[in-house]
Amino acid sequence: MAATEDSFRDYVAARLVGLSRVAYLLTGDRHLAEDLVQQALIQVASRWEKISATGDPDPYVRRVLYTQHVSWWRRRRIVDYPHAEPPDHAVADAAHDKDTEITVRQALARLTPRQRAVLVLRYFDDLSESQTAAVLGCSVGTVKSNTRDALARLRLVAPELEDLRGGAGR
């Protein structure tokens, strides 16, 4: 049992930063992202033997993250979920173009959770269409149509993000 727990803690230590970043891109909010990571890891801990037995926990963990997020969105929990206290440490402002970031964040917020998930998986996690389909539990065709719709919507709500057009062809 101790070895199982240790392997889980090792995995969390190694992947916490990456999972937090993905959660932030999905939710667009630090507190919600934190909650999302917590909930997803609790879920993962409850099935860790089965997940770790596959040798690569990432696909399952990603899937938990995305389904949990969609579930929150469906239950409108995002709206009434109480925020924790403000972050107790400062975050470096690494963006050299703050306006663009704000535009991207606002544009992402106009997408459905599934469309956001497709963009994050395809262009942030660098998954293929079939890998994305496996994570989201849908067909490759659905991934393609979601990607197309997401990019079209981004172009509509933020035409200044011309560079996104290039992403569509990747």
Binding site: E34, V37, V91, A94, A95, E101, Y123, L164
Partner: peptide, 19 residues
């Protein structure tokens, strides 16, 4: 470029605090 934008956005997120 899309990836760069997403990367820059993700950089805003510190590692999640866990119970």
């Amino acid at each position: 470029m899309t990836r760069d934008l997403l990367e820059r956005l993700a950089d805003e997120m510190p590692p999640a605090r866990l119970p």
